[in-house]
Amino acid sequence: MDAELQVHPRAVVCNESIITGSVTIGADSVVHPKAIIRATKGPIVIGERNLIEETALIENTNEDGAPLVIGDDNYVEIGAVVRARSIGSRNVFGIQCVVGAEVIVTDACSIGVRCSVLKRGDLAPRTCVYGEHNQRRTAAIDPEPPTSLLEVLRKVFPSYHHLKKATVSSA
């Protein structure tokens, strides 16, 4: 399984994360322990500066086996369940949110805590889903990317966790 995992030398991926299938993790990304990334139906390509927190689940359930491409600067919080078709950049997936299959998340979207986005199709840029009833609105500014938090984590993690070895990759 691990042989199909490609980790950029600058990414920090804890050994205790549960990664199955063909997964590529880009530069400066951090994957917390107990995060679950499953390339079930197809590969998953994760871009740069993404933060995937513990108990978050990212799964590729694309029926046609297309890769789930995740852009840069995304923040997947604790317990989020993301099974989208593809994900752009600078998105925030809140705690325990659910993103269903066949949803295309564009850029700078913000899915709130315990919200769900299940309708197939595009989620327009800067859409914000919030509240008990999954209300939507369009924000005026991008959500804050997790860059500064990533810096702190990249310094702290090596002292507490064993990390997955970097693989020399051309991506």
């Binding site: 913000s110 914000c128 919030y130 509240g131 609105r137 924000a139 005026a140 500014i141």
Partner: peptide, 12 residues
Amino acid sequence: LSCSTCKWSTFE
């Protein structure tokens, strides 16, 4: 000022 739930900000 910005809201962490619905992402409203004073820019609006």
